[in-house]
Amino acid sequence: METNRLSPTLAQALNDQMTNEAHNAQIYLAYASWAADKGYDGISNFLFRHANEERNHMMKFLEYILKRGGKVVVTAIPAPGPDPVSVNDCFEKVFKSEVENTAKIYDIVNMSMAEKDWATWNFMQWFVKEQTEEETLAMDLLSKIKVAGGENAKDTALYNLDRDMATKPDDATLAQDATVDNP
């Protein structure tokens, strides 16, 4: 008896996204290693935590494909690309990666809607919210780096940023959660 409840196109898209999440984990891992090598232990810690979060996202896709009766296809992960040249560059690259990931998530949402696969559409809503958080967090960090001087940030500002990043929460306050009393 056939138990697969994913169309071939959605199964492919979900497998591709699983690989993309693994790739994003590698990007965060590479940037965390770069930051540690430069002595930015707080930034490194933050990025290592996000590498782990991306691996968890990969596993969510893997488990979903299996639970829907689909076939998981594990493929090679692309290299993360060149190391950042600065803290500013690092977080610009993080933001760019998150925006690209959001576009891929939206493609799957649109595909699931077009195919009327409401289970997949519902599954993907968690990722829609997660990507909103990830983009907001990256934008907030870029704003802090801009205030610190951006590409021209002084060592003292980077030291303070690094110290703050060691304890920075891994999520961001979203616009939909804002109220008059809690903007």
Results as ranks from 00 to 15, higher is better:
119 A>K: 05
158 L>S: 03
18 M>E: 03
99 V>M: 11
124 M>G: 04
38 K>E: 11
46 F>W: 06
104 K>S: 14
36 A>M: 09
116 K>G: 00
163 R>H: 03
47 L>W: 01
83 D>G: 05
136 T>N: 06
160 N>Q: 07
174 L>S: 01
145 I>A: 02
123 F>T: 04
5 R>S: 00
107 D>F: 08
60 K>P: 00
94 V>W: 14
19 T>H: 13
162 D>S: 00
35 A>S: 14
6 L>N: 05
30 A>C: 09
138 A>P: 00
146 K>C: 01
10 L>G: 07
143 S>L: 02
33 S>N: 13
138 A>G: 03
116 K>R: 12
87 V>I: 12
118 W>Q: 08
66 L>Y: 12
1 M>Y: 09
70 G>M: 07
31 Y>S: 09
57 H>V: 06
111 M>H: 15
140 D>H: 05
88 N>M: 12
166 A>N: 03
115 E>A: 08
100 E>C: 11
183 P>R: 12
21 E>R: 09
40 Y>E: 00
8 P>W: 05
15 N>D: 10
116 K>S: 10
53 E>Y: 03
77 I>Q: 07
103 A>V: 13
17 Q>K: 14
32 A>H: 06
21 E>A: 09
137 L>A: 11
102 T>C: 12
87 V>G: 02
13 A>M: 15
147 V>R: 08
25 A>G: 15
171 D>G: 07
142 L>R: 01
66 L>H: 14
90 C>L: 12
40 Y>Q: 04
19 T>E: 13
116 K>T: 06
104 K>P: 09
59 M>K: 10
45 N>D: 10
96 K>R: 11
27 I>G: 02
110 N>Y: 13
109 V>L: 14
58 M>F: 15
86 S>C: 01
7 S>T: 12
83 D>I: 04
16 D>H: 14
3 T>F: 15
5 R>I: 03
89 D>R: 04
159 Y>I: 08
179 T>E: 10
42 G>C: 05
103 A>I: 14
166 A>C: 00
167 T>H: 09
58 M>W: 15
7 S>Y: 00
121 W>L: 10
85 V>D: 13
25 A>P: 12
158 L>M: 07
47 L>P: 07
177 D>P: 06
19 T>L: 15
105 I>D: 07
168 K>H: 03
109 V>K: 04
90 C>Y: 03
33 S>V: 08
52 N>A: 09
103 A>G: 10
136 T>Y: 02
10 L>H: 11
119 A>G: 02
9 T>H: 15
30 A>H: 07
21 E>P: 11
137 L>T: 06
29 L>E: 10
114 A>S: 14
149 G>N: 00
126 W>M: 04
172 A>T: 05
97 S>V: 11
159 Y>S: 05
131 Q>V: 09
164 D>P: 03
38 K>S: 03
133 E>D: 15
101 N>W: 01
27 I>K: 15
78 P>E: 14
142 L>K: 02
132 T>A: 06
38 K>A: 04
